[in-house]
Amino acid sequence: MDLYFNSLNSGQVMAFGFMWNILPIIGAILVHLAFSAAVFNDANKLQREHGSLAFVNSWLWSLAVLVGGVFVALAYWVMHHSTIAKH
């Protein structure tokens, strides 16, 4: 086992480290895109059914989720779909 790790050069080690550092970033980008698309579709549906959304329109909610991620998506859900929003 030690023989394998001793035969790696510094370029291979750096490439391996770079791959494991970039994967979480790619995952976060995909999650932000997916949540943004879902909020955009849901906001458009709510706008058609109810006429308006809380604070801003669907594309701005989508942009906010794209930048802010899961926490902004949670805020959107609380304002539009939770029992708090019904009162």
Rank of each mutant, 00 (worst) to 15 (best):
Q47A: 03
N6R: 11
H32N: 12
A43W: 06
A28R: 15
A73G: 08
P24R: 09
L23H: 00
I25F: 03
L53I: 04
A15Q: 11
A34T: 14
S58R: 07
W77G: 01
F40C: 00
L74D: 01
R48M: 09
W59P: 00
V13S: 05
L63F: 15
V70T: 11
L46S: 05
R48K: 15
G17T: 09
A54S: 11
N21S: 15
L46G: 01
G17Q: 02
S36H: 07
Y4M: 04
L60T: 13
I25Q: 07
F16A: 06
I25S: 12
N21Y: 10
N41F: 08
Y76A: 00
H32C: 05
T83G: 11
S10K: 13
W20Q: 14
V56N: 06
G51A: 02
F71A: 14
D42K: 04
L53M: 07
L46Q: 13
P24E: 04
L3V: 10
L60E: 10
Y4L: 04
H50G: 02
V72Y: 01
Y4I: 11
S10L: 13
A34P: 02
H80M: 12
L33D: 04
P24Q: 07
R48Q: 11
V56Y: 07
F71N: 12
A64Q: 07
F40E: 06
A64K: 12
I29C: 09
S7N: 08
S52L: 14
L74T: 08
N6D: 06
H81C: 03
A85N: 10
L74W: 10
L46W: 13
A85L: 08
Y4D: 14
G69T: 10
I84V: 10
W20I: 14
A15V: 15
V67F: 12
L8E: 11
M19Q: 05
D2L: 10
D2H: 05
V13I: 15
F55A: 02
A37K: 08
F18C: 13
A75G: 07
G17P: 05
A64W: 12
A73S: 06
D42G: 08
V31M: 11
L63C: 13
A43V: 02
M79V: 01
S10P: 09
W59H: 14
M79T: 02
D42F: 12
G69Y: 12
F16C: 09
G11V: 01
Y4K: 04
